[in-house]
Simulated assay, not measured.
Amino acid sequence: MGRAREITQRFIRRKWRKMQFADAFKPIFDGEITLNHRNMKCLKDTYKSSIWKLEIKAGHKSLPVVLKISKQLRRSRPESTVERNIYRKARKLLQPFMPQIYLTKRNVNGHDLWVFMEYIEPVRGQIEYNPDHFKKIIPTLAKLHAATRNEKFMRHEKTFADWLPRYDSKSMHAERVQMNKSTLHYLDEAMKKPNLKAILEPYYTLLKKVLKDGPEYLPEVVEAGLSIVHGDLHTANMACHDVKEKPWQVKFIDWEGAKFAPCWYDLVYLIGVFLAYRREWKDEEEAITRRSVSLYAAEMRKHGVVFKTDPMKLYQMAYLKRILERGLYLQLSWAVTGQKEAKLLKVYLEKVKVLGKQFGLY
């Protein structure tokens, strides 16, 4: 992995002048453009990106702007390429669902991509997030899925052809096959550890049966439609100017996990994964899920999408499918290697047992 240069306030100011970004902003805002170098804040900095909140003065007005610097490493991860291209190539189609992109500039400081975009406050930090807020997000999510579903996506196929992962591609099928093999491997490795064996033993036989029949589980989920999905819907990746506003004007940020995939996968992350972590709502999970799924189906219907299969059944199938394709692999590998705490392992095991039986997988 290549080493990326440290991003500092001084470095940004110098590049602002050298690249003449003020002139590039003039067609967007009226008046003389200046960067307020006294009001610069680093929001996040990692080996792959650096995110800053800047203040730009346009005439007599000041406005906050996000600068996201995607660092081009020697061995770039595929998801980094996805996000770079979302900002550069797909912003016309996806602009209603993300902050306004003011300006993108490639090859800054080598091959880094600099993206200047509208600053919108993340939902995290504005409210104490709970399942009641799903209804604030689902209308925008349904609009994204309906706008990019099946044939509507195909109209823009050339835009995404060489960089957006597609669930129906040979390469993603090969990934699922490999993930399936790895899940079986980590399942057997976990059984060698007494603490994990105690957890897994009641599920081991059914897991072996289900996984050996994979990885193309429950085709109804794919048949229900593919759309551009965000892939990582948690509160830090959802933004809203005013959470007191009705309805929320939600925008999604950090599109690294975007792909053309079953539309129900975003619902699984928004609802299922959240509730898997937050077990205080365990007793209300089914009621919360039914309300949310019903709202999603109703919002999709507004945009001309009617699901032939019962929406709740599709959601449950998608949840099970996602666990078997990826979720179980992550939890088992983390448990075996100790890389992370496998917080969802027990929840996922029980979901496979209950939903797997319900849908005849064992």
Results as ranks from 00 to 15, higher is better:
Gly225Cys: 03
Glu32Thr: 12
Trp334Ala: 05
Arg326Gly: 14
Asn180Thr: 12
Arg279Trp: 06
Met98Gln: 12
Glu223Ile: 00
Met312Asp: 08
Arg279Thr: 15
Tyr204Cys: 01
Val210Ser: 01
Glu286Gln: 11
Gly59Thr: 08
Thr183Cys: 13
Phe307Leu: 13
Gln126Gly: 13
Leu54Phe: 07
Arg3Val: 12
His156Asp: 10
Pro165Ser: 06
Phe134Asn: 02
Ala342Arg: 00
Ile28Ala: 12
Asp310Trp: 01
His133Met: 11
Leu67Gln: 04
Leu187Cys: 07
Arg38Cys: 03
Lys302Phe: 12
Gln20Asn: 15
Ala90Met: 10
Asn85Phe: 03
Asp254Lys: 07
Ser169Arg: 02
Tyr362Phe: 14
Met154Val: 02
Ser70Ile: 07
Glu118Ile: 10
Arg322Asn: 09
Arg176Phe: 05
Ala58Phe: 00
Arg290Gly: 09
Phe307Lys: 04
Lys105Trp: 02
Asp232Ala: 08
Thr159Met: 14
Glu118Val: 11
Leu63Lys: 13
Pro219Thr: 04
Lys209Trp: 06
Val293Trp: 03
Met1Phe: 14
Glu121His: 14
Val222Gln: 12
Asp254Pro: 01
Ala22Gln: 09
Lys61Ala: 13
Pro202Val: 07
Gln95Cys: 12
Lys26His: 07
Ala335Asn: 03
Asn195Val: 12
Ile101Val: 15
Tyr87Asn: 05
Glu216Ser: 12
Lys15Glu: 09
Asp254Tyr: 09
Met40Arg: 08
Ala261Ser: 15
Glu245Val: 05
His303Glu: 14
Asp23Ile: 02
Leu332His: 02
